[in-house]
């Protein structure tokens, strides 16, 4: 079942065409990696898919609904309920503990705020021992793991990951990718999570079922 459908999406900044007719279909349970040089529009495509940005032309549909037809409040609800983000910068709130940061999205989705699930996720990402710690008490890797856990708390249909391993060492980065793929694979068939990841790392990309390359605004399948 198609979860996200990107059709002929173009994005222009001034005179520069960053995306040129990108097309992508993400099915439930898909794992998609997008690679490309810096400034090629990878993050832009991800932001458009997540409703954080709007295309100059083309459409992005989630579950058949064109995101452009949604009001701002509905777009926020879309993100709260269906899309999880993992950024290169962890963007943890320094005033919240690890477990509280994980539970932050539940405020928006009014979803289950049980600490058990949050703790379970922290265990899965390997930082359960930091549950009551604050971000400044953790290493960069630990913070990024917490950020991953935060993205997973609401059981979103799609996870959009913008270079989640960009600031991490090789081993930690691999662990994060493992985590993402494992979580995607662990879901029941009717609630499987799709993962779309932007990365520079070919090794990581190779572990995803589908690979794309974005070059000069054009999205091409394969490496």
């Amino acid at each position: 079942m198609s979860v996200l459908e990107v059709r002929e999406v173009c994005k222009v900044f001034g005179e520069r065409r960053v995306l040129d007719g990108a097309c992508l279909t993400v099915e439930s349970g898909d794992t998609v990696a997008i690679m490309g040089p810096s400034g090629s529009g990878k993050s832009t495509l991800l932001n458009i898919m997540g409703g954080l940005d709007t295309p100059t032309s083309g459409t992005v549909a989630f579950g058949g609904t064109n995101l452009a037809d949604l009001a701002p409040a509905e777009t926020a609800a879309y993100r709260a309920s269906h899309v999880g983000f993992v950024f290169q910068e962890h963007h943890l709130l320094p005033q919240l503990t690890a477990i509280e940061n994980v539970l932050l999205p539940t405020l928006a989705a009014r979803a289950d705020r049980s600490e058990e699930r949050a703790l379970s996720l922290l265990e899965q990402v390997g930082v359960a021992h930091r549950r009551d710690g604050f971000p400044w008490q953790m290493s960069g890797g630990e913070r990024q793991r917490v950020a991953v856990a935060r993205a997973l708390i609401n059981r979103h249909a799609v996870h959009l990951c913008d270079e989640p391993t960009g600031n991490l060492d090789r081993e930690t980065g691999s662990q994060i990718v493992d985590l993402l793929l494992r979580v995607a694979a662990d879901q029941a068939s009717d609630a499987r999570m799709a993962v779309v990841m932007v990365t520079h790392n070919a090794e990581h990309a190779a572990r995803f079922a589908r690979n794309y390359r974005l070059d000069a605004g054009v999205l091409v399948a394969g490496t």
Binding site: A73, R79, H91, L107, A108
Partner: peptide, 16 residues
Amino acid sequence: ASQIGIMLATGLSPKV
């Protein structure tokens, strides 16, 4: 700013 950004990104409405 970035904290507020992540709150919006996770789906909290601007009003909240």
